[in-house]
């Protein structure tokens, strides 16, 4: 199911929440990335119909979200805030909210049991939420979001406060939901978390959309920041000399001891296309090749700062 924002803006008096966002998100996992206060939570609230756009619109499956309660059958939402009816048990919490989707009591019970199991909460299901650890509260919040099998899942900072095992399980769950054809939108300000889940990101800062798409493609578009490529090979001198002959190569630093060189290129696509021929032609043996700034953190740094 497709999620679209069309010239979407939201402001509170003089304060801008999000400003003229325009994007389309399809099935798979998409990360909403931005520093704290960038507008990620506001955007998720707009997309789940909790806030009304000041301008533009949000469509889920082609329908506007605001005051369209029937659409909520297809939507699951895990809020950022650590808020619960703490006197309820985990089972009561998930069960009551699932039942509000109109399932029969048997079906609600079945879905609750399954969701608790998927979230790894079966053992603690009959304890009061007030006595849960932060990680358990995150898991139970997640369970209520997907128990009704929504087509679109909005998760606001879902890994906050989780232990490493919880993080691993949740990341696996999110990736699987995306692989299974669901549209999963995850907001986070922690870059490596998003990087583990997906290559598709929507980068926002100060309520503005900075970039949207595949992280590698976005990286290529940032021509003001040359891409660094580090190569370990057996003929560092020869490769350095050959690489410096290309116009797009801005610099080459080599480290003879480690047997590696770091190239700065302003045309990453051309560079990667040319490199195999070059090394074959000169019989250079490449041990490893990686790009230290082709990760999400680097993209984030370049775009935000």
């Amino acid at each position: 199911m497709k999620v679209e924002a069309r010239h979407l803006s939201k402001w509170y008096g003089q304060v801008i929440g999000v400003n003229d966002l325009d994007f389309e998100i399809g099935p798979g996992v998409t990360g909403f990335l931005g520093p704290n206060g960038a507008g990620k939570s506001t955007l998720l609230k707009l997309m789940t119909g909790q806030l009304k756009p000041s301008k533009g619109e949000v469509l889920v499956g082609g329908e506007p979200v605001w005051n369209n309660y029937k659409l909520n059958r297809n939507i699951g939402y895990c809020p950022e805030q650590d808020a619960f009816w703490k006197f309820l048990t985990g089972r009561e919490f998930v069960g009551s909210l699932v039942a509000m989707h109109g399932f029969s009591s048997e079906e609600s019970e079945k879905r609750t049991v399954r969701a608790l199991e998927t979230a790894g909460m079966t053992e603690h299901a009959d304890k009061k939420i007030g006595g849960y650890s932060k990680g358990m509260r995150q898991r139970i919040k997640l369970a209520q979001a997907f128990a009704h099998d929504p087509k679109v899942l909005f998760l606001d900072e879902p890994l906050n406060g989780m232990d490493p095992v919880g993080r691993r399980d949740t990341i696996e769950f999110i990736k699987k939901a995306g692989r299974d054809g669901g549209t999963v939108i995850v907001s986070s300000h922690i870059l490596h978390e998003v990087e583990e889940m997906t290559d598709t990101i929507l980068l926002i800062n100060h309520g503005r959309q900075l970039a949207h798409g595949n992280i590698f493609e976005i990286r290529e578009l940032i021509d003001t920041h040359p891409l660094q490529v580090t190569i370990r090979c057996d003929q560092v001198n020869v490769l350095t000399q050959k690489l410096l002959e290309f116009d797009d190569v801005l610099s080459v630093q080599f480290d003879r001891e480690k047997g590696q060189l770091t190239v700065e290129t302003k045309k990453p696509r051309d560079f990667h296309a040319r490199l195999p021929d070059l090394v074959l032609k000169h019989g250079i043996k490449i041990h490893s090749l990686w790009s230290p700034d082709e990760n999400l953190e680097a993209v984030f740094e370049y775009l935000v700062r």
Binding site: K45, G49, Y69, L71, N72, I75, Y77, H101, Q144
Partner: peptide, 15 residues
């Protein structure tokens, strides 16, 4: 105040 309203408002039930 308890911030539990979103759990209710994202159900397929009119407000």
């Amino acid at each position: 105040e308890d911030q539990t309203l979103p759990y209710l408002l994202i159900r397929p039930i009119p407000k």
